[in-house]
Design a protein around this nucleic acid. Structure first.
Lengths: 263, 263
DNA sequence: TGGAGGGTTGACGTAGCGTCAAGGTCAAGC
DNA sequence: GCTTGACCTTGACGCTACGTCAACCCTCCA
């Protein structure tokens, strides 16, 4: 007669595993000797080896007892089922590997490469780190909401950076956000540029209604800007004074597809 | 301000997941409103999207906060580490698929195909189902102990089945095990054949010492036989009377490599 | 004003054991 | 006979990433 340790070493498993199989009823509890030790016969070794063979093949413990009792056809069907599950799990992990290979630190995180490239360009034309970080967070929200559209918008945004007015706007905003004090003149200049750009877009007819409105996304972007820097509230106020509802959503017409949020 | 449900739906996760992230400190707990509800700002949405991006890529939650704080080099190193872990897990599952593809019901379970073929042949020459089942369990033990050698032994065992004496032995044993009563004459005949075979092997010098003794394997096989059918005890006794220790291990010489256990 | 549809904490369940904790038992050497 | 080390016992928590009640509170709308 064998002790639990001997049984376990015969089958190449741990003592804890054997006790676990007892607990879940996979392996029947054997008789105890006078001191309360479990005592196993040779058939227990055979059972344990069969169990481990299936477990090593990826069969969940909960299904092993059924499989050991099954006839050949049922067994084969179960094998197919387990194999499908293994394949699915492998596919999941493979997808994870593909995903993780796309991950880049910094601007690339949670953003398609086109947006990351836009952010890099923004930095090049003089936007400060904080400005770019704020812009990036905004685009993360946009990309989460409209992953299909965000890539289309990027060429438009990149083209806008060729306009000296736009470049000036981002530099002014950078200076505002990087400063410790509130500089009213800069805020006014920024608001003036934004209004000018809006009027331009309005006159040229570039402002067309978004077919699927972005719902609450503009509000969320406003809130995000305010959390990044409360001085954006003042900016919104100046926009309102000039006849525009502000910042992310222009009042007279809904958000146009080629004028996605600025910050 | 957003409720937890709104936050969750923005990021495409469940409410329970968000609370879980709070619990493990991955996402900071927000302020509560007057009624005790959690109230979130837009930055929480951004944080949650970043978290899900990494989690979807297979990063364990416990490592996400470190990765979000890491610089580009550390981040890249962490990405490589995660990818290695994913690869290892995929390899494990692939190995499981290979294993499970080898699995066959019945005799094939926990045995190499050569042994399964031997068992099929045994059935063909007239061994009963119970006899084959007992033999199979014995070979499961042997295969677990000496997986390297067991395949080598099979051609020898198959050749032995060409000997009419051996075939007769298995048929007699089958009759013994399938019967409800103890038939002394059959037991005597079986013992006589086994002794004759042993003497033959002894004289022809086929019995050479096993280089690596099988230790307690013979004892285990004896025990297994006795658990399958207690009448094997009587068989062992008859063998002893005839000058052989019995059954699985011959007394005058250690177990020969070409005479592996009979049952 | 009542009901539907939010929100709150707390706790258990999942798979397959690993790993203490706090003891009792056994075999061997002194 | 005593110690020592290796083994056995049960009980319980830990791990991953939440799902799923339970029991109760809050808000909004017809």
């Amino acid at each position: 007669m064998l002790t639990i340790g001997q049984l376990a070493s015969y089958a190449g498993v741990t003592v804890r595993a054997v006790r676990h199989y007892h607990q879940i009823g996979l392996l029947p509890e054997p008789e105890r000797d006078s001191s309360g030790y479990r005592r196993y016969g040779a058939t227990a070794v055979v059972s344990l080896i069969k169990i481990r063979t299936l477990a090593d093949a990826g069969v969940p413990l909960a299904q092993i007892s059924r499989m050991l009792e099954a006839d050949a056809a049922t067994f084969a069907e179960a094998v197919r089922r387990i194999d499908r599950q293994l394949r699915d799990e492998i596919d999941r992990l493979q997808a994870s590997r593909t995903q993780i290979a796309q991950l880049t630190a910094g601007n690339g995180l949670a953003l398609p490469p086109e947006v990351a490239a836009y952010l890099d360009r923004l930095r090049e034309v003089g936007a400060s780190k904080r400005m770019v970080a704020a812009e990036r967070d905004g685009w993360i929200l946009v990309a989460a909401r409209r992953p299909d559209r965000v890539v289309e918008w990027m060429p438009v945004k990149l083209a806008q950076l060729e306009d000296p007015q736009v470049v000036r706007l981002y530099r002014v905003l950078s200076e505002i956000f990087d400063s410790d004090t509130t500089q009213e003149d800069l805020l006014v200049e920024a608001a003036d540029i934004m209004v000018a750009l809006a009027e331009q877009a309005y006159r040229s007819g570039d402002m067309v209604a978004e077919e699927e409105p972005l719902d609450d996304l503009p509000d969320l972007l406003d809130a995000l800007a305010a959390e990044h820097d409360p001085r954006t509230d003042r900016l919104r106020a100046l926009m309102r004074e000039r006849g525009w509802s502000g910042w992310n959503r222009m009042e007279r017409l809904p958000e146009p597809p080629d004028r996605p949020p600025v910050s």
